[in-house]
Every structure is written in structure tokens, then in C-alpha cells.
Design a protein around this nucleic acid. Structure first.
Lengths: 191, 191, 191, 191
DNA sequence: GATGAATGAGCGTTCATTCAT
DNA sequence: GATGAATGAACGCTCATTCAT
């Protein structure tokens, strides 16, 4: 629908600009120009700057969750599921570096304060596959006894940092190295 | 030296403000007021805002390195040294949450872009204990074959994220849990 | 006529909004919404915002004049006519506080500048009952020798201000007090 | 003092602009330009636009009160005092038409809403000469039995409106006519 | 005729930096 | 050396008006 066209143009322009230059480097006027619309037009689609920024984040999150759930190995062993999420997230972000960079900007800003309390994969109305994984792993005693937040950190912090380094050109992640990182994360949480 | 006095006042005021309220919540005028100096005075000690911010970061880094080197177990096995750095860093940041928060603000901002390319422990004119560790571990074949950056991420990302969660009140880190996290990180990099 | 319907809806919506919230609180979009028409539709009926605002004023003025002329005591003594106009205007505005408030907003704004030069009762194509009154009073030497504008001010300024106070709840005007005010005005202009 | 210089420049520029063109016709940028200062400078002297506008009003009010009290006929009959205030106010505003116009703009705006509830001559820390007059007149039974607000309206509304007409060139007020207006106002309130 | 999406000039305000004292 | 008054570019946002449908 033509209606969505400008909405998407604005989202894309804003995401790009914020991902590349941070929130400071993306004033509304610049977003409008890049999106090819008037400044006022942005405010027809988004109540204000904050809403725009939060909407982009939600969109990105939903796309990632959808991607991860697409081929999710339901019913398979905990390790299998863990590797799926880890490698899936790495693949996704490497394919969509703007999404990753935007997410980084978002989380380290006043906007991200609320979200940090939630799990990255927890989305409204959907089962939280990550918490499921944690509970199943704990029940089957295949993972160490850790608070969920710590489990999450051990499992994903190295992945996120490595993706960041890859996008910044500090390391070159290929499939083998990505898999090695994810299995190493597994090594840190498995019993 | 009286000269140093104001220099330190400014550093401390700026670090506190930025740690607590972010870069946005710390305009030069507010820093000056909190430091008890005139606005213009800041510019006598620091060329501009960027220089001030980067100087604070470097200062913090050096203090951390000094702390870690204080009781560094030179000559001990790689694992020993690894655990020293990991638990030391956690202790340090838990004791100095302002330093940690400042660091977080710094890294996720245009200022942090350059520094991300360097290792956190690489400091001018000092031996880089972390790179030493990596090389020794690799030579002795006690750690996996990984690019240094990835090794660093596996080793420290969960620590940093866990400290962040602790400071934000999401988890409660005590000595035992801290040690468990560090040994888990070791599990992920050891062969 | 259907054409008139929307015209009136717009007039009423705009008058209400402006009376209650002032010109600032009545953007065209809000007027359109309250009137139940599209924004663009307003511009089919009124060339622009200024024309709309001036048209409302003229409408209100005509309604007031019509009300005052309805039972006008033609041929009666000057004092009689004076009291009719004074008490009539007070009654009218107390019954129609929106008209009054709109008028107040209008007069104290760039829009009112032109109109202040005209007499409130002077309307195109109608006999100006007020000027008639003034001339008759002067000819019969029952009122002081004053410029018409001053006569008008002595006669009506206290009425307008008192109605304003009444609408704002500062005084409570009943029939007796209203009549007392009007006769007091007469006291100030009579010889 | 040089300090006051810019403060006064800003006050004067803002008052002039607002008096002549209304609040809409006096954006901060225009005030700054007319005052010969940078936009930011205004905010060193006044917290924000509202404070500037209210400060100007208070300044004007104080100047008027001071003028009226200067030769106030303390102890003289009520009528004497009444005439002093009435003719004094007229003289003052005719001499200072910008003050008058500013006051008009102020009173008919959101800013004036609060002030309308107070008497124009009531100022903090000073005896309210007008209320005194009202009470003395009532006690001595030389004025009609009226609510204070109505008394005020009968006494001053014609004066204010006539000054406005004079400033707008609709009438020419000389000393004799001014006095005639004030005595006419007295006629309307005296028993 | 009726609509409302699109526009951008213009608003009030902030704050890093300068420079006369 | 120390100061802080002065600056103005830049920000987020509003709203009267237009014009393609």
C-alpha cells in the first residue's frame, strides 16, 4: 500500500542515520531529508521523536524473533536449541548490520533503560524461547545453576561483542568462527 | 600542586555527572558549577569537551590497570592470571560503580568508536598483560585457537554485562557468584 | 440548504474553541475535527483563517444587534432607549457567554485592531441605533457634551467589564445589580 | 550599572514589540535583534519567555503605582482621591502609551488571567490605595452600595477605554476632556 | 464538492565555546 | 591564571495552507 511507503521510508532513513551516527547525528530534519519527506510529515506517522525511535526498535526486535523462530528446533535437546539461537542471531546481525548497530545505540541510551530489564528475545504475545531454554536446561540439569540474567550474559554477551567487532572490521567472522564462538558460549554454561 | 586540584575537581565532577545522567545531562556549565570553578576555567585545563571526556576515560582505564597489576600473579599459570584479571575487574567495578557507568556511557557514544579498536587493557607505556596472557595461553595450548578479539570477548563480555546488571539491581553479585562467572568464562576459552 | 449546514458547523466549532481556549487553542485541524468536516473543507467556505475569524465576529455582532432591535422602544425618551440597550446587552451576553468570550478574544488581538475604529453597533446596511441615541441626547441636551467615542465608553465600558467579571465568577450579576450598573452608566453621561 | 544595561534593553525591546504587534509579533529572535543582543543572552536575564513577559508587566505596574502615590492626597476627601487616581492614570498612560498598550496585550492573554482577579493598583507590600478608597467611600456613604469589582469597573473602565481610543487616534484627549471623563466616572459611583 | 496527507517556515529553547576583564 | 557574560547554530515540534485524489 502506498500509505506504508512513507512510513517505511522514514523508518529506514532514521534507522540508518541513527545506526551510523548515533542519536545525536540524526536530527529530525536530517531524517526527513534522507527519507525524502517534509519534516512535518514525520509527525503524521509518529507522534514524536521518542515514538519513532521506539517503533524502530520494536520493528527490529520482531523481525529478529521471527527469523529465529522460523526454523526453531522445537523438541530438540537444549544444546541444539541453544546453538540455533546463538548462530541464528549471529547470522541475522551479520546480514543486517544496521539492525545491530541501531540496537546498540538504542540500548545505551535513555530509551534502552526500560528494555534492559527485559530479555532481548521476550516479545509480547509470543512465547519467550530463551526463558524456556533456561528453564528446560535447569530442569534437565544440563546447564549450571545460575540466575537467568547471568546465564543470559554468559550465553550472549560474547556473541554480541563479536558481532560488533565484525561489523567494525576488527575481526572477520565466517561460519566456522561463528559456530566456534557459540559452542564456546555453550561451554561456559553447560555443566 | 594547586594546579592539579582544579584539574581533579573538574574530572571528578564531570565523571559523576556523566555516569549518573549521561552525556546529555552534563553540560559544561553544570560540570563547572559542580566542580566549583568557572566555565572558562575548564577550557584552561581541557581543550574542549571531547578532550575532557576522553581524558576521563583514560584516567579510569589507568586506575583499573594499576589496580589489576598491584597483586598480579606474575609467573603463575595462565588460568591463575586469567582468574585474577576477571575477578579483579569485577571487584574493582563493583567497588567503583561510577567508573563502570562512565565507561558504559563512553563506549556507547561517538567517543567510544575509536577506543573500541584498542584492547581495554592496552595502555601507553605499559606492558599489555592481557595480550601477554593470550599469547602465553596460545603458546602453551591451554586456550582455544581464537582471534585475540574473540578471546577477549568470550573472556570479558559476560563479566561486563553481569557487573552492569549488578549495578542496575537486576542481579546480586557476591564473591561466590562472581567467581562462578569468571570460571565459566574460563570454561569457554580453555581447551 | 446543505451548503449552509457545514458553514454553520464550522462557525460554531471555531467560535466555541476560540471562546474557550483562545486563538492559540484552536488550530484549523481542531476546528475541522470538532465541526465534523475535513480541514480542506473549511477553505471552501472561508478563504483563510483570518476571514473565518472575522466572519464569526460579524455574525455575533449581527445577532446582538438583532436582539437589541427586537423590542427597541422607538420613539421613547433617550433615557429609556439607553437603558434598553444597556440592560439588553448585559442580558444577551449573560445568556450567551461564548459570544462574549469570543468577542473579548477578538478585540484583543490583531484581528480586533480594525474593528475598534468602528462602533460596536454600527453594522452595514442597518441604522446605527447607538449613534441615533447619541445625537438625539445631544440635541435634547439630556446628555453631557462629549465626543461620541467617549460617550460610548462611559456608557458601555463598565457593562462589558462587569459582564466579563460575571462570566469569570468574580461577581454575581442578578437583574437588580445589572440594572444598577446600567443606571449608573446613565448617571455618568446624563446632564 | 552596565549589568542592568542589557536587562533594560531587552525589557524595552520586548515591551515595544509586544505593545505594537502583540505577543505573536514578538518572537524571541526579534526581541533579541531589536535589543541588540544575541538570542541566548535573553535567557541569561530571564528564565524563559513567560518570565520575561510577566516581569515587564510587573515593572510597568510598579512604575504606575509609584507615579500615583507620588502626590497622593492622603487624608483628603474620597472624591479628591478618586479624581487623583483617575486623572493620574490617564496622564500616565497618555505619557507612556507603550505601557498602556503592553498592559492591554497582557490582560487579554493567558498571562493576564491571574492578574485579572487582582486589582490593577494592588501591589505586593504596598497599601492598596484603591481598596482603601472603596472602603472609605462605603463607610462614609458617599458612594453607591456596589461590589468592589463593579465599583472598580464603573470607575475605571471608561478611563481605560478612552485612553485606548486616544492612543489609537479615535479621540483627542486634552486635560479638560480627561477631567470631564473622570468626573463623569465619579458621577456614576457617587450617591 | 470534499478531503486530509504533505509541507516547511517559524517558534522557544539549549549549550559548547569565546574573549574582554 | 580565572572568570562568566555573551553568543547563535541547531534542536524538536506546530500548524496554516495547498492540491492530488
Amino acid at each position: 500500500m502506498a500509505k506504508q511507503k512513507k512510513w517505511e521510508d522514514i523508518i529506514r532513513a532514521a534507522m540508518d542515520l541513527i545506526a551510523k551516527q548515533g542519536f545525536h547525528g540524526a536530527p529530525m530534519s536530517m531524517i526527513a531529508e534522507k527519507a525524502g519527506v517534509g519534516i512535518g510529515t514525520i509527525y503524521r506517522y509518529f507522534e514524536n521523536r521518542d515514538v519513532l525511535i521506539r517503533t524502530i526498535y520494536k520493528e527490529n526486535e520482531e523481525k529478529l524473533v521471527a527469523f529465529l523462530l522460523e526454523k526453531y528446533p522445537y523438541g530438540q535437546p537444549v544444546r541444539e536449541c541453544f546453538l540455533h539461537i546463538g548462530t541464528g542471531a549471529m547470522d541475522y546481525f551479520i546480514q543486517n548490520p544496521m539492525d545491530f548497530k541501531y540496537s546498540e545505540q538504542f540500548h545505551n541510551s535513555p530509551y534502552g533503560a526500560v528494555h534492559r530489564r527485559n530479555r532481548i528475545f521476550a516479545s509480547v504475545g509470543q512465547p519467550d524461547i530463551f526463558m524456556e531454554l533456561y528453564e528446560k536446561g535447569a530442569a534437565q540439569q544440563v546447564i549450571k545453576k545460575l540466575p537467568p540474567a547471568v546465564f543470559f550474559n554468559l550465553a550472549f554477551a560474547p556473541i554480541v561483542w563479536s558481532v560488533r567487532d565484525h561489523i567494525q572490521g576488527i575481526v572477520q567472522l565466517d561460519g566456522a568462527l561463528a559456530r566456534l564462538i557459540v559452542t564456546s558460549c555453550w561451554d561456559s554454561v553447560k555443566i
